[in-house]
Amino acid sequence: MNMRSGYYWHCFRGILIREYLRFIQQRTRFFSALVRPLLWLVVFAAGFRAALGIAIIEPYETYITYEVYIAPGLCCMILLFNGMQSSLSMVYDREMGSMRVLLMSPLPRWFLLTCKLLSIALVSLLQVYAFLLIALFVDVEPPLWGYLTALPAFLLVAVMLGAIGLFISSWIKQLENFAGVMNFVIFPMFFLSSALYPLWKMQEASEWLYWICSTNPFTYAVELVRHALYMKFDLLAFSITLGTTLLFSLLSINGFNPQRAAKVK
């Protein structure tokens, strides 16, 4: 067929610009997305600091405050909320609105959805870095290069969470509103992970809770980010996060078939 040069690139660029423009337009959403993790960091962590001592654990080389411990998990929390929220709106929009415009592109559907997931992920990174900037005020100070080495980790985690969100909202009809997703997906995923407590703490409390946490892909996403932020590489966390991203990307793109939408209409 007669494809213009740079066809795919222009398409990706256009989708990314649109996500960015929408992000600029929705400043209130940006600030409210920051308030949530900041409350955890400033209020929750202050209360827990005294109750919870953190021993020296990888990747940290010294004793750390609780704020330092939960910062990577809170970064992932931003990505988790964004990923779920955006994916849910993609499914809602499937038969109307902006997704219709997207799906009218002659390019393959898998490419369009991948571009969309990637663009949402890239725009989410702005929020993560804004959060990390504010976190400096409560002495969360990873090494300067850590901000850079964490970038690919953030991106991978953001795509993984977007793909999981897309998969869930495409296949599980009962979770078609955000409250449902929040109660049955976001909160369990976040609390049953190493975001707030190290896994060994969980193991002390309950063996089965520990088992659930160690099978939760979000745990590995948090650990990947935690290590990357301190310029270390966790191979296990990377492999599991990458594998989960690929698996859910495939499943979600397949699940997005409008034929399914027609069947349940």
Partner: peptide, 9 residues
């Protein structure tokens, strides 16, 4: 412009 990019312009 968004539509144009989806068509590769």
């Amino acid at each position: 412009a968004y539509h144009a990019s989806l068509h590769g312009f």
